[in-house]
């Protein structure tokens, strides 16, 4: 190829990339801009009009969706208006309460199991691990009805413990599988010298395996975090719809139903749901990509 055609080729590549990237980014930009516009602006003109007309931005939408039921605000004409908020701040706390243990508990259990499978000898080791591999792709829908019946019997429906355990169960196959692949590559000598020194397995696990597996645990933590925070189905089934416990995704889905045309609120609500995963994602992208590479099929 001559240098000239190569340059032209490169320009074409970059131009098509820019078009594609815009296609991907514009919906998010539109959402964010709309969430900052006043109600009447959002409902009467497209968000792109702020590029060529003067309009004011406001946090009122965020105040309303985060606020509780007795939310009041001053509208553009200066009147004080009472409106019902969506109490997303409560849902935000609920989401954190559901997510943090739903990430740490399966990580603890999965890393212990991965250590056991990789470095301890016991009957049924191969059969059990084969079962773990088989369960990698089992759709979690299969568990909804039986587990819901169990929960109703022992009073776990609508409880945090119930949903932590559910997320633990559904996250374990991938967790054990990925961590096993990582833990089993730790050099044998490290363990042997520790065991020769008389260290107990629990000590070896806590002092050696956990610190050495930090990269794998980190990438798994991001997976599980995004999965749990963004989950709707498991929360709908096991947590129930009461606003005491409902998480962000549930509240947002409800808002779509009840406030389908209130775009100023929906956009603000959607952004609140997105903000934490986006921060985590950008801060820890490196680990996330490593985890993806390690192979990810989740049930």
């Amino acid at each position: 190829m001559s240098i000239k055609t190569e340059q032209r080729w490169l320009r074409l590549v970059n131009a098509s990339l820019i078009v594609l990237v815009l296609l991907w980014a514009i919906p998010i930009i539109g959402l964010f801009i709309s969430s900052l516009r006043a109600k009447s602006d959002v409902l009467n003109s497209g968000w792109w009009t702020i590029l060529y007309t003067k309009s004011r931005l406001t946090f009122a939408n965020y105040k309303q969706v985060l606020g509780g039921s007795k939310y009041t605000f001053v509208d553009s004409a200066g009147r004080t208006v009472r409106a019902s908020g969506d109490n997303l701040s409560r849902a935000f706390i609920n989401s954190l309460t559901v997510t943090i243990p739903s990430v740490i508990i399966p990580l603890l259990i999965a890393s212990a199991a991965a250590f056991g499978f990789a470095w301890l000898i016991f009957p049924g080791r191969k059969a059990f691990f084969t079962a773990v591999v088989a369960m990698l792709v089992v759709p979690l829908q299969i568990a909804l009805i039986p587990i819901l019946r169990d929960y109703q019997k022992i009073g776990l429906t609508g409880s945090y413990l119930g949903i932590w355990l559910a997320h633990t169960g559904f996250g374990l196959p991938l967790g054990i599988y990925l961590l096993y692949n990582y833990v089993s590559t730790i050099p044998r000598d490290i363990f042997e010298s520790a065991f020769l020194d008389g260290a107990k397995p629990l000590v070896v696990f806590a002092r050696l395996v956990l610190p050495l597996s930090v990269p794998a645990i980190a990438s798994l933590a991001i997976f599980q975090f995004l999965w749990v925070w963004n989950d709707l189905l498991v929360a709908l089934v096991f947590l129930g719809g009461t606003s005491d416990v409902a998480v962000l995704t549930q509240r947002l889905a409800t808002m779509v139903g009840s406030r389908g045309q209130d775009w100023h609120l929906l956009t603000a609500g959607a952004f609140i749901v997105m903000v934490i995963p986006l921060i985590v994602f950008f801060a820890l992208q490196r680990y996330f990509v490593q985890g993806l590479m390690a192979g990810s099929v989740k049930g």
Partner: peptide, 26 residues
């Protein structure tokens, strides 16, 4: 002999309860 099950036991119990048995029960 019991030691390994301290590590893999919890995972196996939870997997049995949440994925394996539900398949049969469903």
């Amino acid at each position: 002999r019991l030691q390994p099950f301290v590590f893999v036991g919890p995972a196996l119990i939870i997997l049995a309860w949440y994925l394996f048995l539900p398949t049969l029960r469903s």
